[in-house]
Write a protein that binds this DNA or RNA. Structure first.
Length: 924
RNA sequence: GGGCGAGUAGCUCAGUUGGUUAGAGCGCCUGCCUUACACGCAGGAUGUCGGGGGUUCGAGUCCCUCCUCGCCCACCA
């Protein structure tokens, strides 16, 4: 605290400051949460907890992470300063498919597959890779200042969290909410695993609708025509279905047709639910093993379910298929087979016609391969019972989702929720804790690995599959806190957590499921606020991604402009729910807001610290109000406003009473508004006005200089604290040099108290008058291009303002030096002895008389004054109409009417003055 | 096909229950290297608040309708 400002270089050296400061913060344990501090565990602080959406363990930091984690960091730093026991819990996700893909790619480069290694060696290799590289993204988060509690870093595949996963599976199984089903599921032929509904993403494509004619058995002159987009599946058809009310096919129902190529006979049946008579020909082929809808129909009618496409996506005669697939097609890729089959059908005359057809095709969310519906055995979670409390939570406002509109999306999805396929045919993940007996048919689901069948004592083998990655991450808000150990200190102190910050893309994947898990396993919502922020996009509104090459590396930005610039830019640009647009081809421009602000802040600090010096300033409380000048009271009042605005923008940290009430429901988390309020205060008020006004006082020294020093130091101190959550590095660097001594100030701004309003200060209208006067002079100077060297003689005349005129003039004289310095050559005196050459009218009714010999163009001024008068007149007319309107006076709030009346008075006075001015300038 | 959202300055967006003369950042124009800052200072221009209709004393804000763009959901073969 004794460092002198003279050491401050002309530019903030973010490179060295960031590394040094972050180490100091860690060494001081600023980010380590203490369970004993939480009032849930006997402490005296409200806990405030955010669990980080765990990035994939193989991920490398991109702007999306940068944005997501900066938002969380701002919130957690804010609450930490507010005195909460703040915990931001970091970690990574083992990311089943994604990680397995990375390793398989590596193996591919070595000419091997995972099967060459075998399961155990493959898992070991993946573990080693994760151990070696898995910390990368967390290190990168440290680099941008993330104030996580690293002592609690979690990993979804750690032994602790794996135990939680197993416990969750067993509990759900015991409650009858997990079952094994033989179903048609989404299958990725490249990843060789099933996918959940959410993992199989739709892509709109223009395909071809093929019309195929199946001849009637025994009478090829008759037949039925069906339409299909996937002719290769026709080999697995077991029936043709028509709607029972469809007269066109009435005579054909019950007869059989001969399936071309496969040469098997299949019946024509009716089905009310699965057939839309309006679509295609109104007749649909049924392929139970290769289509989810057909599977339902096949089940209803007890049909066979032959499989003709293998897991790898090539044609095969699988179970129940007999020899439906001819030798010439066996082993062909499904799309190649489609071409060949279409060709064969065309030759045999079975292909009637084709038409182009726009439809949605599902793709694997990891590798974009077209998903193949496939019949197989999978484990499912029954979601309906789990969804109910999750729905109620939002409806009853135990949980709010911001922006508000996502609540409807959430509710809509939960209302139509379907069971969750949690089996994945992968090796990387939590192996399903189910054992099958070789001897009997016993299925064992167990917390501990059984060595033999509990029923017959025979040998058992574990299910080969692993669980969906999200089956571990849906437990994240409590598994990371020690669950299933209900006595865990962390769980007691920090559950439920508070805010969950993420992108809308994973609302269903993750957020909704976490809420369900929270109720299912903890009987409590895992958090009370879901904040869904926008996506980072380029200037063409395309989402940034590595594969598209339009990404921005946050570490590049940090190297060039510093972590603070990066953080400020994304937070300042983050309207509620709005996307953040950045130009990957022009970092200079994209990050200008942050860079400019950081530099400005640095220069304010340099000036201020240089001029205030290093001697401890007076405590504000010790300064008698009579020693405070108008500017001092004004800046302290402005600070109050800034604090109030920041508080309002950040909003309530938690619901007052477990459930959100109407008034606070959608308040807060306006990060761009918070940033703007803090920016405006420190730049447009503190630097542009107050700091300028103190220059001569500081130079003059003495008692008044001491007051100015103290007010400068204290207001800058508070400004830095308001900004700390956004720009922690530069604020710490400057803050620790401010010569303020305060009992609870501490060593680090990160844990300094959040500013509170000082009720001694309020708005200072007289200073606003000064500001307006100066602005008026500047405008006139600019209009007449008066060179900086030329003195303008200005007189503030408040005599027409009504009361205490003489005092106003006297007070203003006191400030004359201030105005003189702002524009360097403007001088303000009282009204005596000055020839009126130009008048600047101020909103208060006061005016400035300006004498600029030989410069003022009377005609021009006259014209301006007339235009102004005209405008004011029409505005005044409108105002009078409104005030004479009974509807307005009756229904508008009293304060509004009052304000309008006051305004009317002001404007009338101004109008009279303006008219007088026009007259005095020689007009009429 | 269903549901939801958006359209405000050249660009990206604020504008909370209808109520002073609709704002910010970036960009643009003019003048300034004024010993904290040219990553700056001072001044300035640009808006029929998507079109049309309605409710109201009063509409960027509420209602209807149309247009244009997004997003989510859905088994239409």
């Amino acid at each position: 605290m004794t460092d002198t400002a003279a050491e401050l270089p002309t530019l903030f050296d973010h490179q060295s400051a960031e590394a040094t400061l972050y180490q100091e913060w860690l060494a001081a344990g600023l980010f380590t949460a203490d369970p004993a501090g939480s009032d849930l565990a006997g402490g005296d602080r409200d806990p405030f907890v955010i669990v980080m959406p765990p990035p994939n363990v193989t991920a490398v930091l991109h702007m999306g992470h940068g944005l997501n984690n900066t938002v969380q960091d701002v919130l957690i730093r804010w609450r930490r300063m507010c005195g909460d026991e703040a915990l931001w819990l970091p970690g990574t996700d083992h990311a089943g498919i994604a990680t397995q893909n990375v390793i398989e790619k590596q193996l591919g480069a070595e000419g091997k597959t995972r099967f060459d290694l075998g399961r155990q060696a493959f898992v070991e290799r993946t573990s080693e890779f994760v151990t070696a590289t898995g910390g990368t993204i967390l290190d990168q988060l440290r680099a941008i200042g993330a104030s996580c509690d690293w002592s609690r870093t979690a990993y979804t595949l750690s032994p602790e969290l794996s135990q939680a996963v197993r416990e969750a599976f067993v509990q759900l199984y015991e409650r009858g909410l997990i079952y094994r089903g033989h179903r048609v599921i989404h299958w990725c032929p490249r990843c060789l695993t099933s996918l959940s509904d959410e993992e199989a993403e739709f892509g709109d494509e223009t395909g071809t609708l093929y019309y195929l004619r199946y001849p009637l058995t025994g009478d090829p002159s008759q037949g039925i025509t069906i339409a299909t987009t996937r002719p290769e599946t026709m080999l697995a058809d077991v029936s043709v279905a028509v709607h029972p009310d469809d007269d066109r096919y009435r005579d054909l129902v019950g007869k059989t047709v001969t399936l071309p190529i496969a040469d098997v006979e299949i019946p024509i049946i009716t089905d009310e639910i699965g057939v839309d008579p309006e679509f295609g020909t109104g007749a649909v082929k049924i392929t139970p093993a290769h289509d989810a809808n057909d599977f339902e129909m096949g089940t209803r009618h007890g049909l066979a379910m032959p499989i003709v496409i293998s897991p790898e996506g090539v044609m095969e005669n699988g179970s129940d298929a007999g020899s439906r697939v001819p030798d010439t097609l066996l082993g062909l890729d499904r799309f190649e087979a489609r071409k060949r089959i279409v060709e064969m059908l065309r030759e045999s005359g079975a292909l009637i016609r084709t038409e182009s057809h726009a439809h949605a095709v599902r793709h694997c969310y990891r590798c974009d391969t077209v998903v193949e519906p496939r019949l197989s055995d999978q484990w499912f979670v029954k979601m309906k019972p789990l969804a109910e409390p999750a729905l109620a939570a939002v409806r009853e406002r135990q949980i709010r989702i911001l922006p508000e509109r996502w609540e409807a999306v959430y509710v809509n999805w939960l209302e139509g929720i379907r069971d969750w396929n949690i089996s994945r045919q992968l090796w990387w993940g939590h192996r399903i804790p189910v054992w099958y007996c070789d001897g009997c048919s016993e299925v064992t689901v167990s917390r501990d690995d059984p060595s033999s069948c509990p029923k017959c004592g025979g040998s058992v083998r574990q299910d080969e599959d692993v669980l969906d990655t999200w089956f571990s991450s849906w437990l994240w808000p409590f598994s990371t806190l020690g669950w299933p150990d209900r006595n865990s200190a962390d769980l007691k102190a920090f559950y439920p957590t508070d805010a969950l910050v993420t992108a809308p893309e994973i609302l269903f994947f993750w957020v909704a499921r976490m809420i369900m898990a929270g109720y299912a396993f903890m009987d409590k919502a895992p958090f009370h606020t879901v904040y869904l922020h926008g996506t980072v996009r380029d200037m063409k509104h395309v989402k940034m991604s590595k594969s598209l090459g339009n990404g921005i590396d946050p570490l590049d930005v940090r190297a060039q402009f510093g972590a603070d610039s990066l953080r400020y830019t994304v937070i300042a640009g983050l309207g509620m729910g709005a996307d953040v647009m950045l130009d990957p081809n022009d970092l200079e421009k994209s990050f200008a807001p942050g860079r400019n602000f950081v530099t400005k802040l640095w220069n304010i600090g340099r000036f201020l610290l240089t001029n205030v010096g290093s001697d401890t300033v007076l405590p504000l409380d010790s300064i008698d109000s009579s020693r405070l000048r108008r500017a001092d009271r004004w800046i302290l009042g402005s600070l109050n406003t800034a604090i109030a605005e920041c508080d309002a923008a950040l909003g309530p940290a938690r619901p007052r009473d477990r459930v959100w009430d109407e008034a606070e429901l959608y308040r807060g988390l306006r990060l761009s508004e918070y940033t703007e309020s803090a920016r405006r205060f420190v730049w447009n008020e503190l630097a542009d006005w107050y700091l300028e006004s103190t220059k001569s006082r500081l130079a003059a020294g003495g008692d008044d200089g001491e007051v100015a020093r103290a007010v400068l130091a204290h207001s800058f101190d508070a400004a830095l604290r308001l900004l700390q959550p956004i720009v922690p590095f530069i604020t710490d660097t400057l803050w620790r040099r401010i010569p303020v001594q305060d009992a609870d100030r501490g060593e680090f701004i990160a844990v300094a108290p959040w500013p509170v309003q000082d009720e001694r200060f309020a708005a200072e209208p007289e200073f606003e008058l000064v500001r307006e006067a100066v602005n008026g002079i500047r405008q006139l100077r600019s209009d007449y291009a008066i060179p900086p060297g030329q003195r303008a003689h200005a007189v503030l005349d408040t005599s027409s303002a009504g009361d205490s005129a003489s005092r106003d003039i006297a007070v203003f004289d006191e400030e004359a030096s201030f105005i003189g310095r702002v524009t360097r050559t403007d001088v303000v005196t009282d009204a005596e002895g000055t020839d009126q050459a130009a008048t600047i009218l101020l909103s208060s009714g006061s005016r400035i008389l300006l004498s600029l010999e030989g410069i003022i163009d009377i005609e021009k001024e006259l014209k301006k004054a007339r235009a102004e008068l005209e405008k004011l007149s029409s505005q005044l007319d409108a105002l009078e109409t409104r005030l004479s309107n009974p509807g307005f006076t009756e229904r508008a709030p009293g304060s509004v009417v009052e304000a309008e009346r006051l305004k009317q008075g002001e404007w009338t006075a101004r109008k009279a003055q303006l008219a007088q001015k026009v007259f005095s300038l020689g007009g009429s």
